[in-house]
């Protein structure tokens, strides 16, 4: 049910982000969501793409360190308090969020949130029961 996220190691130096996006563009990959977490020395680029397998292959054959992780993707309403409401539900269920990022959707009044949690299944179950629609690889490929 979950969405596959691509993570790429990037040193904090000029051109590092560009290298990654250039490889993906060359491979005809469409990047749906993009976020960077960094420390003083390096960063981790996290992405949702339309074709994670080809993307991972292209990056690693160019010498990049890539990992593919299952994350929870969820659609929320793009309105005040939307994110807060979601996090309230997750927090109340005692689920620890390692990181998250949000991005707008092509569907009107909707935003997408990616959650990295320790237990995808439980999180998805709770969100479904609370009436949320979850993202899948299929949706990520075609329409978010």
């Amino acid at each position: 049910m979950s969405v596959r996220q691509l993570s790429v190691f990037a040193e904090n130096k000029q051109g590092s982000l560009y290298e990654t996006t250039a490889i993906l563009s060359e491979a005809g990959i469409n990047i749906r969501a993009f976020s960077v977490a960094d420390t003083n020395e390096y960063g981790v680029i996290r992405m949702i793409v339309d074709d994670p397998r080809t993307a991972a292959y292209s990056l690693s054959s160019e010498g990049k360190i890539v990992s593919v992780t299952d994350v929870v993707g969820v659609q929320i309403s793009d309105s005040q308090g939307g994110l807060s409401k979601l996090l309230g539900i997750v927090s109340q269920a005692g689920i620890n969020v390692e990181y998250l990022y949000a991005f707008v959707s092509s569907i009107p009044n909707t935003a997408n949130v990616v959650l990295r949690v320790s237990d995808n299944e439980t999180t998805e179950k709770i969100l479904r029961e609370s009436g949320y629609s979850l993202l899948t690889d299929e949706i990520a490929r075609t329409q978010i």
Binding site: F9, I65, S67, E98, Y99, R116
Partner: peptide, 13 residues
């Protein structure tokens, strides 16, 4: 960096 050392969470690295 190696694939074994890498993780999507910075905390783990």
């Amino acid at each position: 960096m190696t694939p074994e050392l890498f993780s999507d969470t910075i905390n783990t690295i």
